[in-house]
Design a protein around this nucleic acid. Sequence first.
DNA 1: AACCATCGACTTTTT
DNA 2: GTCGATGGTT
Length: 737
Amino acid sequence: MPEMVDLMHKILAPLNRVQKNAVASEAKHLCVLAGAGSGKTRVIVHRIAWFLASGKASSANILAVTFTNKAANEMRERIAQLISLPTSNFWVGTFHGIAHRILRRHHVTLGLPDNFQIIDSDDQLRLIKRTIREIGIDEEACEPKKAQGFINKQKDEGRRPQDALPSAMPEIAMYNEVYRTYTNTCKRSGLVDFAEILLSAYELLRDHEDVRLAYQHQFSHILVDEFQDTNTIQYRWLQMLLGQNNAITIVGDDDQSIYGWRGAKVENIHRFSQEHPGTETVRLEQNYRSTQTILNAANHLIANNEARLGKELWTEHKKGEPITLYGAFNEMDEAKFIVERAKKWRDSGGSLSDVAILYRSNAQSRVLEQILRQSQLPYKIYGGLRFFDRAEIKDVLGYLRLLANMSDDPAFERVVNMPPRGVGERTVANLREVAKQQNISLWEAAKQTLPTMNAGRIRNGLQQFVSCIEEVSAEANTVALPKLVERLLQSSGLADHIKSQPGERTHIRVENVMEFIQAVGQYQKSFDAEQDKPAENSIKSLPAFLSEVALDAGEKESERGDQSCIKLMTLHSAKGLEFPLVFMAGLEDGLFPHHRNAEKQALLEEERRLCYVGMTRAMQKLYMTYAEKRAFAGLSGSNRPSRFINELPKNLIETVNLNVNISQPAMRSGMPSAKKKSNSVIEGLPYTLGQRVRHARFGEGVVVCGEGAGEAARLQIKFERVGPKWLALAYAKLEAV
DNA sequence: AACCATCGACTTTTT
DNA sequence: GTCGATGGTT
């Protein structure tokens, strides 16, 4: 008993007053509005521990749901750390992970094969393309990407093809037809996409009372992280688990809802307390991350949003440095400025791993990379292609999927001619025809068709493929996964193919495959440990491995090898992270807020939240930059500074123009036009940035930047014919144009 | 069937 | 300025 009291003390002691109220709340339901950097995860972890320590629930009664594997793992680890209990019987996981686990358990009830597999959005798109072709709709009229968006949206909203909303638009009917056919194909092939996981899990609970009651009985205490990001079906799914008696704790921040475009409904958190009588709402507003200056600016910005529950961050930290605003001449100049300041940070004792450069769209990283490389600063781009999405890895996975489930037609199509063995589009089309007529899989069709084919290159190739699969498949009974993968790579010729590809990427691809084999080995190990004995075959572990891979975003990759690297990522992928020094680049109207989201209020508010998220990543110092001219496909030409800049309190901002070595006083007026003028004057020189000049030898150009004064004054001119050149003003004969 | 050249599109992406 | 898809050529 004294241990219990000790434990309860240990749980509450490190918390502030509001956090304590949340953790120990006796209310039936709890809504924690957790501002950025306010100790959100800590509250959720401690509340779980509190339930356990106070005897309200045992670990098996708790369901904790997150959106990312990373968050789920972190939660699990921190619970284990706080209370010394094994966490293996906790239900902690992502929406998809938990729903998937339930699907596996009840696959019979759902009419799913026991070896059903998960397809990612890439596979989904391929399958949809094929479906469109199969139906025979004109691809011009039915863009696969749009069809994919439609289907996922339907599923996110809980609508099956037969539930289609009446619509006057003929294309809706067309998309729905694709949806219907696609659904059938998935069923036949034993495939489940991401949205399907959630929808099926919801329908299972909705339609089967016994199942529903069993889970309701089990999960007396439900906790949900990042609740502002839940979509319709996730909300309903939670509703099913909640029933009348269970208690739920939701944690989230409506000001950080930035995934509305993916179906997330901020309204879910807005209306939660109304729909759940007995809800206590707690606001975590003390921030442990940023300076008061940064928080004030962020508070001021987000106050412009109308639809919000309302929250104001504060901190006990110092005021800190002002936010530095830099209006660059162009994107090069912007990148140079950022790199310059990052260097300064390092030279004055900071670490480059503390530095993050955030941007609205991925394309912006290119210039930054270029300048970083030139400056020889180490950097790492986050959120690019995920490890398991690399082409060579997906090829190997395609083979494995086929081994796990011979009816997996998309997998068949991916690998039947990989490496090229003469089985082209024509041959596959024939197989598809056979498969369709007899309602069998492509694999079966291939085996059946083979003896009737004309001898030749095509038949040889297909025969090779079939033999390879059968051979390796037989071995799956006797060898473990890593060995199986190696055999597969050899037997299929994929290993040789990758090695023999010309180009500089070969080396990396080979390395990736090696790493994949290693990952497979690790997986087999942990699988064996769970089963309590080493498996002498891959049959059992393979489907589970594939599911794990499909539901793994590949976050592990970002963990390694990032010592003292500057981090580059989009604002979206920065959510949940923090950095001592943050640069937000490309704050231009059109880019950020993105022009497609600038008109409608709701969309603009989401852009503003994105800006808020970006700003609140910064711990010590925040830079915001924009380029007056940006060469950017589609959005070329000159841009105004982002309207968000004007929404920041002027007294928290210092405006700087690095290249001319002058610090400008804070903007006098918020008007971009006024600012533009004052900013482009080069102090002490008779030229302005962006001015056109003519040189006797180099021709016409534009003043890009300048430095020095008097005799030492130099200007950088970007010439149309010969590119940028630095010229000493004293010698170069320039004339204004 | 495989390769190459040309055209055009282009936000964000937890699973 | 780059990636991907498409169409024509070998």
